[in-house]
Each structure stands twice: as C-alpha cells, then as structure tokens.
Design a protein around this nucleic acid. Sequence first.
RNA 1: GGAGAGAUGGCUGAGUGGCUGAAAGCGAUCGCCUGCUAAGCGAUUGUACGCCCCAAAAGGUGUACCGGGGGUUCGAAUCCCCCUCUCUCCGCCA
Length: 426
Amino acid sequence: MLDLKFVRANLDFVARKQSERGSDIDIESFSSLEQKRRDILQEVEALRSERNTVSKEVGTLKKSGSDAADLIAKMGAVSARIKELEESLKAVEGELHNMMLVIPNIPHDSVPFGRGSEDNPVVRTWGEKPTFDYDPKPHWELGENLGILDFGRAAKIAGARFAVYQGQGARLERALINFMLDLHTEVHGYREVMTPFMVNRESMQGTGQLPKFEEDLFKVSGTNYFLIPTAEVPVTNLHADEIMDEKDLTLKYVSWSACFRAEAGSYGKDTRGLIRQHQFNKVELVKFARPEDSYDELESLTLNAEEVLRRLGIPYQTVTLCTGDLGFSSAKTYDIEAWMPGQEAYREISSCSNFEDYQARRAGIRFRRGDTSKVEHVHTLNGSGLAVGRTFVAVLENFQQGDGSIAVPEVLIPYMNGVDRISLLQ
RNA sequence: GGAGAGAUGGCUGAGUGGCUGAAAGCGAUCGCCUGCUAAGCGAUUGUACGCCCCAAAAGGUGUACCGGGGGUUCGAAUCCCCCUCUCUCCGCCA
C-alpha cells in the first residue's frame, strides 16, 4: 500500500507512474473521498472534544450534588450526532482503504519503461549452453523414460498440473532443497525458518496477494485459510505489526515450502511437464532492510540466488522487469532465467524483488532508528532461491546424456548419497 | 471435542464507571557522581490520524487506541454481548 499522505500530495506523479505500468488511478474519486474523510474527521473530533470536556463537568457537578440534567440532555444529542458521523466516517475510510489496496506499487526510477516481457533488458548472462550431438529432449520425456517422474498417476490421484516424483527423482528433488538451504544458511548467512503452508486472510493482504488476486489462490473450504502461493507470505508476515530493532536489520530468512497456485487463466500454457504446477517446492529468500540499504540488498539477494545456478553449472540470464511486466507489489524485480535445452529457451527460475515499504505498510512492519528513535517502515525483499521444480527441470535438460541418463551435478552428489548418475536401472 | 482461567505500555504488573495514556517495578536513553566496574542520584522513555506553525525538522494542539468487534452510559481499561488467541485439566491423536 502506498502512503496516503504521499499520494495526496503527489497525485499527478502517482497517476503517471501507474500509467507507466499500465494501470489506472481514479484521481477524482480519490481526492473527493480523501477530502470527505478529513472533513468528517474534523467534525467528529471537535464533537468528541466537547463531549469529553462536558462529561468531566457533569462528573464534578454530580459530586458536588448539583443538578446536571441540562448538560446530560445536551450531550445525549451530541453523542447521537457523533455516532452518525462515526458511521459515515467508517464507510468513507473503508472505501478509501479499498481503493488504496488495489493501487500497485510505484516502480523505482531505475526500472526501464516497457510494455511487457519482450521489453525486459538482460543485465547478465552466465555459463555456456551445453551442446548435444542429438536433439536434446524435454524433461518430461527424460523423466518418464527414467521412471523418476509420473504424470499419469499424478493425474489419477489428483488431477492435471500435478506430478509424482519417484526413486532417484524424489531423491534429486530433496537433494536440491537441501543443497539450496545449506548454501544460503552456511555461505550466505540466512536464517532458516519453516512456517505453516496455510495462512489467514490478513497475511495474504499484508503481502499483496489479496484482495486483488484471490482467484490465483487455493482457499481451504470451511475455514478461513488459504494455501500459500509462496513462503514469501508467511515469512514476510512473521514480523507483521511489529516494531523491529534497527540493529537486527538487515534480517535475512531462507525458507523451504511447498507452494500452491490455482493457475487460473493459464489454460493451455506449459501444460506438459513440471514448469507450471498446482503444487511445487520452492526455497525462498526474504529480507527486512533499512530503506537506505534495500537496493544493495536486492543486488546481493539476486546474486545469492544466481549462485545456486553457478554452483550447479546451469547457464542463465538475469533480466530487469520493465514497468509493464512488474508485479503488483514490487518496486523493482530481477528475473533469473535458466537455460532449458529441451525447450530451447530461457525459463524463469527465480524472481527477486524489492517491495520497498509497500508490503511493510500493509502488514505494519516497522523499525526504530537507534539515533533518532524515529519509527519507520522497513523495506521488504524476497526472491526464489530457487524454484526447486524448475531447477529439477534445468538439471535434467542440461545434464542429459545420449543414453537417456542424467549426470548428477558435482555439488549434488553428496546430497544424492554418492550417486553420480541417474539411469534407468536405478 | 468437554470444563475452567486469562489477554493492560519494550517486559513484569496495579487498576471494577469520571481525578488513568494509564500506579509501581524492571529494562532502555541522557546527565551527574565515581581510580575502573558495580551501586547511587536526577531527567526522559508509546503509536496512529487530524489541525496549527512551517522550506523542512522541531514544536503546539485535538482525537483515538488497555486482544478484536459491537452495545449500555452525559462519560468505559473498568459493565453487557459476540469473536480470536493463550494457559490449565479431561478426551482423542501423527
């Protein structure tokens, strides 16, 4: 959520920034609603003030045995009026709040203007694409041939967009999770957390999934719980409604979770294989930072995520999302795209964002400065480090061999209990 | 699932209708004192929103907030109702 006072003072700027990301803001109704809120507020506060003063007089009069009937009758009327005003104030504030909740974040100045993903500039490429003396196979063929992936039975027990991992496939998924967690905790200094996979509505609103994107989420029927689409939600909300100590910043968390996405509106996209699933594993990096540090922290967070691919030996490129492709809550986002030989394309494997104070304002995450003891909103950041299912895909497709087996990347061998190749016989 | 108890500031904990934004203690910050440390003395120590002042900061002022929501009353931390969460006991259970 944007700062109400900032929006009020910079309406044209905010509207222009929103249009750059292809979003509209109704300046007129915002202004009139905001003005109305202040008008009512001033009136109701003046009346409350009067009531407070007179009520004290009533107390004094009664104590001294005098008659206060006149004042009491008068205040009865004032209280009734206050009640009326409070109701309309509540209505106006609710409307204004709902309006604020659906205004996306303002892109950072360094975010390039563009209409969509085709306009995202590449900031880095790493690694050499492997060459094959045959047509490299997509992971779903490799996986099913090796008996480590079973989409048919997944469809039988659950439905489309689910997968069953078995044998060395299940082991590989688990190895990737452990490898990533170890790297981020032991080398990059993140603190590991394991959180609930279901959260309440407030948490979803805190990080920006609600109210606007409810159709993308799974709701647990008969409860108020939603399945998390990413560990970003529970981990960021860990500090909701808290005032943090400046000395604890930058606070860095890493969390493995299953992620659940309804994938509404993606019919026909990536219907084969592991790329787009209703449930997948992800290792997520989350940071809470001081405002002046957050853009440096975004750079290091992105590099921390890239390090996973470097150690695995998977080629990738990193792009900056342009204004038209930027996510709702983000001020700036880098996408890391891994090379997938079987699909002959770079595919998104991580998305690293700085939300500035947008989520912090929604969720009430603040910190107190040590020197001035001023309270400010923190900046929140997060990024996949990495999407495990898609990393699984990248390993299969990049390390496939002519005989259909998969060479296990060096760094994963210890996590595979010494197995250095996945082949049919395993 | 059943029975009971509870939720107050950074923490502990008073407070059963007006003198309570909230006692006391602890902690923290600043100052004094002191060979060092400790102790001692003094002061300060919430958040949000509005208005005034204003380049801004600071300041002034008003309102709200004692788990959340609603009600009674001239007036609610305090009385009533609903909800959430925590604790204890019983039952069930990975």
